[in-house]
Design a protein around this nucleic acid. Sequence first.
DNA 1: CGACACTTTGATGTACGTCAAGCCATGTGG
DNA 2: CCACATGGCTTGACGTACATCAAAGTGTCG
Lengths: 233, 233
Amino acid sequence: MVRKRTSCMECLNDNCIIKQYCPAEKLEEVSQNKMENRYAPHQLVFHEGNEVDSIYFLQKGIVKVFKNGAFNKDQIVRFSSDGDILGHRGFNSSGLYPVSAQTNTESSICDFSKEYFFKLLDEVPQLAINLMLVYADELNYEETKLRDMALFNVREKVAKSLLILVDRFGLDDGGQINNAEILSRQDIAECVGLTSNQVTKVLGEFKQDQLIAINTKKITVLNKQELEKIVSY
Amino acid sequence: MVRKRTSCMECLNDNCIIKQYCPAEKLEEVSQNKMENRYAPHQLVFHEGNEVDSIYFLQKGIVKVFKNGAFNKDQIVRFSSDGDILGHRGFNSSGLYPVSAQTNTESSICDFSKEYFFKLLDEVPQLAINLMLVYADELNYEETKLRDMALFNVREKVAKSLLILVDRFGLDDGGQINNAEILSRQDIAECVGLTSNQVTKVLGEFKQDQLIAINTKKITVLNKQELEKIVSY
DNA sequence: CGACACTTTGATGTACGTCAAGCCATGTGG
DNA sequence: CCACATGGCTTGACGTACATCAAAGTGTCG
């Protein structure tokens, strides 16, 4: 991991809420209080259960956020990408990270100390309010997923996992799911609480039904509408 | 529903984050911008899918917050009680309530317009920050639940539902779960995505194993430690 | 070219979801 | 005050979808 000082003024990532809501004159100070880090693929950013000391902003890359379950059955909370906040789940009453974060690709991540970040929130109310709105959206997303996981059968869950990937990574011109090649069957399974076995089987069914095409890791969505129909009720 | 103006200064509920984080001189203005409403049991406070216009603070009572699923299989998100915030899940990008809220008991609920509340957040940064922390805790809670629901079998889910109720409502001197008499088997089932049938069966097992005692609706916890052991791994 | 890891596929037992019938409380009207 | 109706609770029986295991297949790396 390579650490260096960089300036928010020159950062090209417009999704970052710091850049969006801090006034220009504040950004100079902000830059003084952060470090930018470069991670190799499959490096741990922070670990579930550890004390929360920092908050992270993912400038570029893909990071897997996940919770430990029993017997190496982890639960993937989300895949974060450019502009996303990491570690904010740790601002809870326990003071411990409730999830782990691990890079999937090479990544650039800025970090602030928790102390400085809270000082910043107090000085820039719009930042606090908009971070609050980020939480609200994530809470909605998780509660919808919770409802769905309670209701869906295996086939529906796999359809849901594909739509989650499409939503997060998008499709390229040919209809292929971006970044799908970096995901194992296990990864897909852990998004929706299944085993890699079950995912493989249902993906095979979907291929049979011409909803998708599979070239090992690369998945092409042929009929998104039908996939959406499977998860709607 | 009876509406009236009351003052936050005289409110006895110290759990309310408005009272906790607004300076005394601000509370006068706040009181001018809210209404207190008295609801009968089983009245709807707001409905999933409706436009978000207000935020609510539950002064006294028990309110069921739930999401609609397929074929009257609702999902209970939580039971709110004295001091809890209601409707904050609606501060999302869709502008619609993602859940419904319905009183279980007679309840007193204060409401603010969304506009005034956001103005207040901007003027009182500590309120915004602490509301953010409320979201963070709820997000943690939901993600833990999501993980558990993906992993647990029926027996474990029922144990979990009992522990949720104990956590929310507490036990009286005799070990009975407070307010359990207002809950149907269906309610318990909808906390953890089961049917009332399944809940009844497992509660019967727990009774057999002397973990609980059942007097129709009233449930007495005899061995909380063992219940916790069932949901731990 | 061989070793390793991941994926695919089939077979098997079991836990689960569903249905239906009986039971027990509660409340109402004769 | 008792008979009856209603709604939720309880229990058992049954078929199915699911979890798990093992073995073969495929791709990838040194």
